[in-house]
């Protein structure tokens, strides 16, 4: 805060440029989606979003997002606890592998799951014997979404835990506390906001994932179409008002997520001070 200056002429020019850039690049698309969604009135909007297939896609997106967030929260907590509180060989490999999904194109993420569970895979006989469809079905969509958002939560927690060190946990352990007790009473209060922030980011990405899911979905209307895929289908069928109506729901969710995120960042900073 010490450096905050009153802005001179240069300052105002820079502020103006930044605002113009952000308004054109970020806000205008949002406004456009909302305007187009409601251009033909409330009725056509509500008809588009209560369509049988639209409702099915909303349900599927919520399901996939929920499962993904649960899995990745579990992983994020344990993984960041493991790599920050203990010293062991191979730690570097684990943290590299954890962050790998961030650098892989969503399409390639989809591709590697097709190669894993598809017909040419060494796993295929087992997959087939289990009678459980993975690719071109819902489990594939869930797996792809988990992959794409895999490191989102651990990446938020790891820096906080690294900064905090291990002294408090060691003290608790020496006084006889077990793992659940230490986690709940000592570690969790530190990572609370970072964890929530990670969950919010993970939710945002999970509900909007397109590329990876597009590879693994069989594109069956009402069965394996998530909201972004359903939007693509409507858009390609030139049903623009329908596509933008469903998009409006996602825009609304994105705005809610941004608001929650800002609150979390604010709360986290407040606690630090």
């Amino acid at each position: 805060m010490k450096q905050k200056k009153k802005c001179g002429v240069h300052g105002w020019i820079l502020i103006g440029l930044s605002s113009a850039f952000l308004i054109v690049m970020l806000i205008l698309p949002l406004i456009y989606v909302m305007v187009t969604a409601f251009r033909e009135g409330w009725h056509s909007f509500s008809a588009a979003v209560t369509d049988k297939y639209a409702v099915a896609s909303i349900k599927l997106t919520l399901e996939v997002t929920l499962i993904t967030v649960i899995c990745n929260t579990l992983f994020g907590i344990f993984a960041s606890w493991t790599i920050t509180k203990f010293r062991f060989r191979g730690k570097k490999i684990i943290s590299t592998l954890m962050d790998l999904p961030l650098t892989v194109s969503p399409i390639i993420a989809g591709l590697i799951y097709v190669l894993t569970f598809g017909r040419q895979s060494f796993l295929y006989p087992y997959v087939k014997a289990s009678g459980f469809d993975i690719i071109f079905a819902v489990p594939g969509i869930v797996l792809a979404t988990i992959f794409v958002t895999f490191p989102f939560i651990s990446r938020e927690i790891v820096p906080v835990l690294t900064a905090q060190g291990t002294d408090e946990e060691e003290a608790a352990a020496l006084m006889g506390a077990g793992f659940p007790m230490i986690f709940r009473k000592v570690t969790f209060p530190h990572i609370k906001w970072a964890l929530l922030y990670g969950i919010v980011l993970c939710t945002a990405r999970a509900m909007g994932e397109f590329g990876a899911v597009s590879v693994l979905s069989g594109h069956l209307k009402g069965k394996t179409l998530t909201m972004p895929l359903y939007i693509e289908l409507l858009y390609q069928g030139y049903d623009f008002s329908g596509a933008f109506a469903v998009s409006a729901i996602l825009v609304l969710m994105a705005v809610i997520i941004l608001v929650i995120k800002s609150i979390l960042v604010y709360k986290g900073k407040e606690e630090e001070l």
Partner: peptide, 26 residues
């Protein structure tokens, strides 16, 4: 600090299922 085995186990299992096996098949 206790809990090393459990947390490393869970981490490696999930990492294996989600990242390592697909990567190996690639």
């Amino acid at each position: 600090i206790p809990g090393f085995g459990v947390s490393l186990g869970i981490t490696i299992t999930m990492l294996g299922l989600v990242v390592m096996i697909p990567l190996c098949s690639l």
